[in-house]
Write a protein that binds this DNA or RNA. Structure first.
Lengths: 110, 110
DNA sequence: TCAATCTTTCAAGAGATGTTGAGATATCGA
DNA sequence: TCGATATCTCAACATCTCTTGAAAGATTGA
């Protein structure tokens, strides 16, 4: 993950509809959800949902695959992990206690 | 960390100068850096640096304290950890392997 | 092939955001 | 107090982003 990719990812996450979508797909897991289901879940028109889904895919935060008439989107977990790593890189510098909370925040779920 | 706070934080991180500043302060650790030093490090005028530092502080990602004539900014590590936790909340749903990379990304530094 | 379903693309308007330079505010040493 | 240093505030301008509705593209079952 380089700086320009991270910028793009943060920009993608800085919009209410898109953040809702990513969290929905993180919860949905690897199976993902169809575009129409996502749009309905976040209260967006098909055009609006498509616009934001493209934006997120372009940023590398989600991936898509076609399944019959539907397009299924799912979270790009490695990209999300890379984003976290990029943000906290070199965070300790001899003070492990300052970034330990970030690790602690993730461990309960895994 | 609630959704609107997370949105604000991601918006703050979605701008090149601001992302540079946060990473600089993450590396600098709890001691922080003076506004002037930060501005110079990222190649921003005093006005530009001040604008972005305010933005980041308003988003809760950095904190400031006055020290003589300087204002010292430092990373708000708990807020960064909260952001990570918000993004990955409920990520596993029976598939621990999908979010383990995010944890692995942070552990080497601590 | 035809009609139905699901999704994407396009253009235009409204609104939000970043940059700039000048000036204001706060602190300190003489 | 006065001048110097460090930082912030303000307004105007240019630019980017989001939303909307209509139309186009892809896929499937009859």
């Amino acid at each position: 993950m380089d700086e320009s990719k991270a910028l793009q990812a943060f920009a993608a996450l800085s919009q209410a509809t898109r953040l809702q979508i990513v969290r929905l797909l993180v919860k949905a897991g690897p199976d993902g959800l169809a575009a129409g289901v996502i749009g309905e879940a976040v209260g967006a028109s098909s055009s609006k949902a498509s616009f934001h889904l493209s934006h997120l895919e372009q940023a590398g935060l989600i991936v898509s695959r076609r399944e019959a008439r539907s397009i299924i989107y799912s979270a790009a977990f490695p990209a999300l992990a890379g984003l976290v790593e990029f943000l906290m890189r070199d965070c300790c510098q001899g003070h492990p206690e300052v970034c330990n909370p970030a690790v602690a925040a993730l461990t309960p779920c895994c």
